[in-house]
Design a protein around this nucleic acid. Structure first.
Lengths: 221, 221
DNA sequence: GATGCTATTTATAAGTA
DNA sequence: TTACTTATAAATAGCAT
């Protein structure tokens, strides 16, 4: 394909054939890998040289891909096993397979793909579902963060107290100020410096919920 | 590899990913075939798209290549003689079940359930995913609605013009008022009785409005 | 989804080391 | 066999349809 265009037919010269095999094999495997990475596809490639050497590649596991391939192609000739057991298996497989397809599609749609096949009503239902999920996720995240903050604040209080006790014991007089985490994080509103107990958690939760999406994005998480 | 060099990592845009998949898949299969022809090699290639579609190629027969591959790699697990067919099937079944479970869980999590088993990082990733999906859904909805509105406007203009012409021809002086569609959509109580065309679309719009999630607020997505 | 169109990037046939 | 080089053929990313 370069210095000179070549015809696609078996290369006569064994040496040249071997060289070409080596080069093109690499190219092929590279392309296979790129396809799987770029397009999130499952790829398996098996090559035997004339001399019988094996080269293979699989984006996941060769066994998995081959199994999956068997599944797909067995649909074309699934008549060849009168075994009842097998029949049952294949029918459960069919059911599973269908459910799988449904779920996959639903998942992709929740990620905003394949929307063209939805009508307006379904689109709105999807939107509602996403809003619901998002709101719950955001709330969970908020709760999680508040809990951590609360825990930290307790620890702060505890440490401060301990500190104080130590200072009294040693008679050293250092002035250590404890920052309120509230103030630190949500400096928007009033002065919260005196609430060191969890009582304000519920309050904050409500606030989170109301405020909606981006809340703690500036937190060091 | 052309207009611009691309990085080999999963393509974010689903549409672009699909296009690339289609193009590169062809290229890959062509190369596989060329290798087998030029170098007299035995080649098997299996590709599953993200959507689960199967594409395969084999220079001889897929079964033959896979069997040969098993021979070579069986050094690693040559103990599984009982029934290769059954083993394959039951393992595929296991794989399918597992995938099914994964997908079900992911789906539930997108709907805001079972969030407790996610750590903060996963939670944030989920949030991002939801935001992305929601934004795409909202955008699709908006585009769809705008298109309909546009179509209706055109029809309105056309009908109005025709109406005028007819009136001039017949000399009849009927007073028909053309509603602005804007007005039409936003007024909940209006009298729509004179819309004789595409009444079903108008209806849909009305219904949508009633369904009333946020309406055009999201359009600029 | 696919197809067609470039401007570029890649792959690679031949040859050389 | 493997590793470079180079001129050229192929593949393909980004767009438009």
């Amino acid at each position: 394909m370069t210095r000179q265009k070549i015809e696609i037919k078996k290369i006569d010269n064994p040496t040249a054939r071997q060289v070409t095999f080596s080069k093109r094999r690499r190219g092929l495997f590279k392309k296979a890998q790129e396809l799987s990475t770029l397009c999130d596809a499952e790829v398996a490639l098996i090559v035997f040289s004339t001399t019988g050497r094996l080269f293979d590649y699989s984006s996941s596991s060769m066994k998995q891909v081959i199994d999956r391939h068997n599944l797909h192609s067995q649909n074309l000739h699934k008549f060849d096993q009168p075994s009842l057991q097998l029949q049952l298996e294949s029918s459960t497989y069919a059911i599973l397979s269908k459910e799988m397809a449904d779920r996959t599609r639903e998942l992709r749609q929740m990620k905003g793909e394949e929307l063209q096949e939805l009508n307006m009503e379904e689109l709105m239902r999807l939107e509602k579902s996403l809003e619901g999920g998002l709101s719950r996720v955001v709330q969970t995240k908020g709760e999680r963060l508040l809990n951590e903050i609360d825990a930290l604040r307790r620890k702060e209080a505890q440490l401060t107290e301990e500190n104080l006790r130590l200072k009294q014991h040693t008679g050293i007089n250092t002035n250590v100020q404890g920052h309120s985490f509230n103030t630190f994080i949500c400096s928007s509103s009033g002065d919260n410096s005196q609430d060191r107990e969890s009582s304000n958690t519920s309050l904050k939760l409500g606030k989170l919920h109301t405020c909606g999406t981006t809340y703690f994005h500036h937190l060091p998480y």
